[in-house]
């Protein structure tokens, strides 16, 4: 599998990840190497094999639907880059 700079740019956009244009080629080469390496997986026939999500095939534990947490908004917002009146601030989304 080989990726070009255009593919890197597209994937970076999907991940909302800033990648310098000057680095596209290096990433394209590294990613192509990694994907080629991963292609070894195709050498084994996995028809009928159940995909394994948990090593002990455990399923998600459920708990009663009760409120167990207290409101700690101020505490959690103290470490936020920008807040006001209990809200997280981001650049204007709607004009």
């Amino acid at each position: 599998m080989s990726l070009d700079s255009e593919a890197v740019s597209k994937i970076a956009h999907l991940a909302r990840l800033g990648v310098e244009q000057s680095e596209y080629e290096t990433y394209a080469r590294n990613l192509s190497d990694i994907l080629t390496f991963i292609e070894q997986l195709n050498s084994v026939d996995t028809r009928g094999v159940e995909p394994m999500a948990h090593p002990l095939d455990a399923s998600q534990r459920l708990r009663p639907d009760e409120v167990t947490e207290t409101n700690q908004r101020d505490r959690f917002q103290r470490i936020a880059p920008r807040t006001a009146a209990g809200l997280y601030l981001v650049p204007k989304v709607i004009d």
Partner: peptide, 20 residues
């Protein structure tokens, strides 16, 4: 930009592979 400036190369590589 926060993610591009905050993460280093190896983390970016893995995010890109995983996203793909």
């Amino acid at each position: 930009r926060s993610r591009g400036e905050g993460f280093g190369d190896e983390v970016k590589r893995r995010i890109l592979v995983g996203t793909y």
